Simulated assay, not measured.
Amino acid sequence: MQGLAQRVTATHPGLVNSDASYGELAWNWGRAHATESHAWRRRLWFADNDLVAWGWAQLPRQVRRRDGSTHDITGAYLAYQVDPDHAGLVDEVIDWFDGVASGVERTVLPCADDEFGLRRWAAHGYSEDQSALDDWTQLNERDLTDIAEPVLPHGFRFRTAAEAGAEAVVRAHVDAWPRSVYTVEAYEDLRQTAPYREDLHVLVEAPDGTMACSAIMWLDEVNRTAEFEPVGTHPDFRRRGLATAMLLHGMRLARAAGATHMTVACLGAEGRPAARELYYGVGFRMLARDVPLVKPADRA
């Protein structure tokens, strides 16, 4: 699946579906397979021994949060990728998803530039998800030729995951994303994914020892590109320039590791500007966006 992501990135970067990039696959698999894989269904399509399409359906399930509360997910979501040279397989992917997720609401995030795919999803009864008009995602990119010097406030310092340790790494993520179900066990699983590197997992430590923000970078050596995912800042340390400094520091580390290009995804709606403005402020610009689609539970 990551190999297909690399091939599509090399030839059609605007068609890398949300949740189907090289780094996103590692992040989603590593952090969740121990607790959520019972609700996953996967299908692979091959041509001459090459993977040319895949579907990863996440079915209804109950998620237990770190505070002991639970959240019921009643619909199904599909992550998928189809090789543009085998675009017609999207119909098989859709039929498969409709089969494994029949009877529940189904959502999917195809790329806005995938005109053929969008027509096929519409033909199968999917329409724009009006409830997700503020939740579409854009992919941003920049090259790594000119990167400003990162500047941290007095007393703050950069750390790597190896220096911070697992407990602090997980706490940094959960502080930034309070609804996350991330655990030390999930992080240990994440560390086993092939592209994970502790030296490309960066944090900013506050003077009191709190890990104020953090980001993981996923290096695709084939395409010499790296991806930030996820990026988060503790609520008590926002609007101090820490994330900006961390992103600049991270891009310098990625460049030293061999990357010439960087990507990061964020919410793109006009009313959700915070992350977009952060990334634009360090030189990123939009490359592509997705289109939230939905099919009601009562539609065959």
Rank of each mutant, 00 (worst) to 15 (best):
L109I: 01
V90S: 03
V108F: 05
G55M: 10
T74Q: 10
D91C: 13
F46T: 10
R65Q: 11
D67A: 04
E105P: 01
V63T: 12
G103S: 10
S102W: 12
D48E: 13
V108K: 05
D48T: 06
V52D: 02
F46D: 08
D67W: 03
E105F: 02
L109W: 15
V82A: 06
R41I: 03
A101M: 14
Q62H: 04
L51I: 11
D95N: 12
G99Y: 12
W96Q: 09
N28K: 06
W45P: 11
A47H: 15
A79I: 00
D91A: 15
Y77T: 00
A47C: 12
L59R: 09
H33P: 02
T70G: 08
W27N: 05
R31P: 01
D72M: 05
D72Y: 01
D72T: 07
D72G: 00
P60W: 09
V93E: 02
A39S: 11
R106M: 14
W54S: 02
R65V: 07
A39N: 00
D85M: 03
A47V: 14
R65G: 13
E92A: 09
R64E: 15
Q62P: 01
P84Y: 09
A39D: 04
V108Y: 04
V63R: 09
G103N: 10
V82I: 15
R64L: 13
S37E: 11
G30I: 01
D48L: 02
G75Y: 08
T35R: 10
S37G: 08
S102G: 08
A32M: 04
I94T: 05
H33Q: 09
E36R: 06
G75E: 12
T35W: 01
L78P: 00
L44E: 09
H86N: 08
V63S: 07
D50W: 07
W40V: 02
R66N: 15
R106L: 12
R42G: 00
W27E: 10
S37H: 04
H38Y: 05
R61P: 06
D67E: 05
H71F: 06
S69E: 04
N49A: 14
V52R: 02
G68Q: 10
W29K: 04
L51C: 04
V108E: 08
A47Q: 13
A79L: 00
D98N: 15
W45I: 13
A101D: 14
D50E: 10
A39K: 03
D83H: 07
V52Q: 02
G68H: 08
L44H: 06
A32Q: 10
F46I: 03
D83Q: 03
W29F: 11
R65Y: 07
H86T: 07
A53T: 02
V82L: 08
L59F: 06
H71V: 15
V52W: 04
Y77N: 00
R106Y: 11
R65F: 10
D85Q: 12
A87D: 13
R41A: 14
V52Y: 04
R31T: 13
D48Q: 11
D67V: 07
A76H: 01
T107R: 15
L59E: 11
D95T: 13
H86Y: 15
D85H: 09
V93F: 02
W54M: 10
V63D: 09
Y77E: 03
E105V: 14
A34V: 02
R106C: 07
L44I: 01
E36W: 04
P84H: 12
T74H: 04
